[in-house]
Nucleic acid binder design. Sequence first.
DNA 1: CGCGATTTGTGCACGCCTTCACAAGCGCCT
DNA 2: AGGCGCTTGTGAAGGCGTGCACAAATCGCG
Lengths: 254, 254
Amino acid sequence: MSQPRPGNGSGPPGPAAEPDFPDLPEATVARLPEYLRALHHLAEAQHDTVSSEGLAAAAGVNSAKLRKDLSHLGSYGTRGVGYDVALLIEQIEYVLGLTQRRAVALVGVGNLGHALAGYAGFASRGFRIVALFDADHARVGELINGLTVRHIDDIADVAAQEAIAIGVIATPAAAAQSVADQLVRAGVTSILNFAPCVLAVPEGVDVRKVDLAIELQILSFHEHRKSALTALPGAGLTALPGGLGPGAQEAVGT
Amino acid sequence: MSQPRPGNGSGPPGPAAEPDFPDLPEATVARLPEYLRALHHLAEAQHDTVSSEGLAAAAGVNSAKLRKDLSHLGSYGTRGVGYDVALLIEQIEYVLGLTQRRAVALVGVGNLGHALAGYAGFASRGFRIVALFDADHARVGELINGLTVRHIDDIADVAAQEAIAIGVIATPAAAAQSVADQLVRAGVTSILNFAPCVLAVPEGVDVRKVDLAIELQILSFHEHRKSALTALPGAGLTALPGGLGPGAQEAVGT
DNA sequence: CGCGATTTGTGCACGCCTTCACAAGCGCCT
DNA sequence: AGGCGCTTGTGAAGGCGTGCACAAATCGCG
């Protein structure tokens, strides 16, 4: 767990000493995974280098932003040429801590939990789900994707065997806080919460929340706004104003 | 302040002219759904008023931020008392355009799509899934939650009958762009994309993306950083520095 | 009727993030 | 070897969002 990296041989880090990355802008961290995905895509297409322009387009961001983001990791590009795809992949994966496949525990094997347990994207992008839990005894024992569902109260035992750093909560809102408490008690320090509620956790534990209905509600706001606009003003919706050639993704916040 | 609504009748909008909300800060819009959820929770608990402090705690945000957010909607609080829960719910629902239950089409009835189709949270929070689509003919005809899966090519016919404003893409990445194109062609102007790829859409179409693996990768970064910190510095992790009483949710970006 | 307690609404300052614009650096071609 | 074009890396400016701190407003009580 400790030993961030020895300064030696193979890995991306490079032989010399490294300050690691104590202070990457949070906004940058949130974009790195997107760059990483785009890079893997490029690698499969046999590209060995990319310009910031090209990578930015593939990731759906501004090229200046991308360069600034990458500059925070150090200089891994070559002026006049671009970035080495393989090198950049290694570097970003290292920064994100993906060189070790992190163990993830999933709690709540209902509708959504089932889907998450079977989601191939986790395995292919640096994670392995090592345990499934549920509070419902009727579900305990069920076999999903090669894993047996265990009762949530067993989580301490499982955590003792395997270092679980990340927990995913896919339970109803009413159960989420108590599940979070159990996860924290078992040593989990990062939680991805799909339940529509706010979690209280001790300092040092990170929580990210994904609320599917909220995403729709944000879209609904923009729909509401759009329909109000087309109803009122003179111009109405004449053939799309600027160019309509597929511009890069229209953001709508983040 | 501008007084967006005349003080008359029952519903929040009121029959008279309205400037609507052409310019709400995007960050505020993203938080309104969270306030709304907290408010519904309070309403169920028979509270008719809340202070900004109380609502902020329930929504996991700063009270000053909450007041500023709400002030953008107009003055719906009473100094010395707080906010009227029912009134605020109506107001936020109106702003978000939830007074009409928006019709949503879901494309991709695989692992995740199945779960989304059965997710009760959509129905209970202002949306109704009116159609399911898939490209796989083997899946067409399947009955899920009272809806029959249709082929993606039929989307134009369905859109003709029912005004579909929002489309949800839960297909593999390879199919997502082509599905998006079909949705746009059918008149959809808002897309929620679960596929791990960037979508190109014409101007005027809004896209929000949810990438489950990216969320985990962001957590992984913080794990990586935490383990590096505990390994190096003198103090190590002595009993949590500040207070460890469950503070409000630790954000980790948004 | 007046006063104090309480809570909203907001002006202001600070910091983060984005974007532009350009100098520095690298490879290639002649 | 020299010059030219291309691309990175970054300084600086502008905008947005956050949080503080306080004035204004309302209620309840004596």
